[in-house]
Amino acid sequence: MAELFHRKLERSAIGFVLAIVAAASVGGLVEIAPLFTIDETVEKAPDMRLYTPLELAGRNIYVREGCYACHSQMIRTLQDEVERYGPYSLAVESKYDHPMLWGSKRTGPDLARIGGKYSDFWHVAHLTNPRDVVPDSNMPAYSWLARTALRVDDLPLHLKALRAAGVPYTDAMIENASVDAYDQATPDSSTSSGVADRYGKETQVRVFDDVATEVTEMDALVAYLQVLGRLTDAPYKNTAAPQKPPEPVK
């Protein structure tokens, strides 16, 4: 009987097409659509901060260089991972991440909580030549980052695009994005208090790459790495294994 039905179906290209679409749609509908409607899918975290323009620029460098191919940003709910990397990752921590960078391979260690774990100086040395600080590392050297000026003039457009995708950047944030990026890496500039006003007092304003005269891609990438895991305290509190949140970086 079923075979007879199928013999009929095989005679109609359009019928077959419709049957394929129907069969293939169910899984996605059942698994994906509820993720937008079930409230518990993403935890509430009122203290969750947005990426500053400089951190966002750094994130875009991370994206551009394909860092996710070797570094995950997702600590799983397994004891050894929590002991090695810190509290397991919550969904809310990547709620403003377009795209998410959870990754699927650890040729290098997880970076979800790398922020504040090492000094800026260490990161700059490590990115310039990883084998200077970790002799057995197989990470590529990214020495050109410190030689490349960061493009900041188009950052308002980036924030605007992200707002269209759902990130709550305000008009003031968009308007001042270029200045804010410059100021965050140049603490002596006259306007540098604006960044902390707009993005929260926890915002790290300092010279990240040890060169105060120019804002480079190295500044941006280090600023991003130093904020990873520090946008909210939620993973330290509302979990099965509460821990003390890390101290603010001096």
């Binding site: 990547s94 709620k95 377009h98 795209p99 998410m100 695009a161």
Partner: peptide
């Protein structure tokens, strides 16, 4: 920027 973010992405 992808329209999807975080866990949904």
């Amino acid at each position: 920027y992808t329209i999807w973010s975080g866990v949904q992405d």
